[in-house]
C-alpha cells in the first residue's frame, strides 16, 4: 500500500494478500495507481491515506497496524491524529475505483 515492495527485515518476507488482489506484487502495482492521491495533496503518503481511509467509516472502531520499528508507530499515530480523509479525497477515490484500478 505504500507503493514499495521492499519490506523491513523484521517483517515477514512476503505477505499473502487477504481479499485484495491476486498477489502482493499486484497489490503494489494497484497501490501505485493510487499515488495520485498524494500527488494531488489529499494525503501525505499512501500509508497515511490507508489509515485515514479506514477511519472514514463510522462503523469502524479501531484500525490495527503492525509495526516493524518505532518510527512506523510514530508515523501511524501521526496519520491517525489527522482523522478521517476529507470528502474531496473520498470523491477522488470513488473515481479511481470506477476505473477498476
Amino acid at each position: 500500500m505504500s507503493g514499495v515492495e521492499a519490506r523491513h527485515p523484521l517483517g515477514i518476507p512476503s505477505v499473502d494478500p487477504i481479499a485484495s488482489g491476486p498477489s502482493y506484487a499486484a497489490d503494489v502495482e494497484r497501490a501505485r495507481r493510487l499515488e495520485v492521491l498524494v500527488r494531488e495533496g489529499h494525503a501525505g503518503s499512501l500509508v497515511e491515506a490507508g489509515i485515514r481511509f479506514a477511519l472514514t467509516n463510522e462503523g469502524m472502531t479501531t484500525v490495527l497496524v503492525g509495526y516493524s520499528t518505532f518510527e512506523h508507530l510514530e508515523y501511524a499515530a501521526a496519520a491517525a491524529e489527522k482523522g478521517p480523509l476529507p470528502r474531496a479525497a473520498l470523491d477522488r477515490l470513488a473515481a479511481l475505483w470506477q476505473e477498476k484500478m
Partner: peptide
C-alpha cells in the same frame, strides 16, 4: 453496526512494507 458489534480494521495498509 446493526448488530451493535465493535470492529477492528485489519490490513488497512493492504500489507504495506
Amino acid at each position: 453496526r446493526a448488530a451493535g458489534m465493535g470492529t477492528i480494521g485489519i490490513r488497512v495498509l493492504a500489507g504495506a512494507p
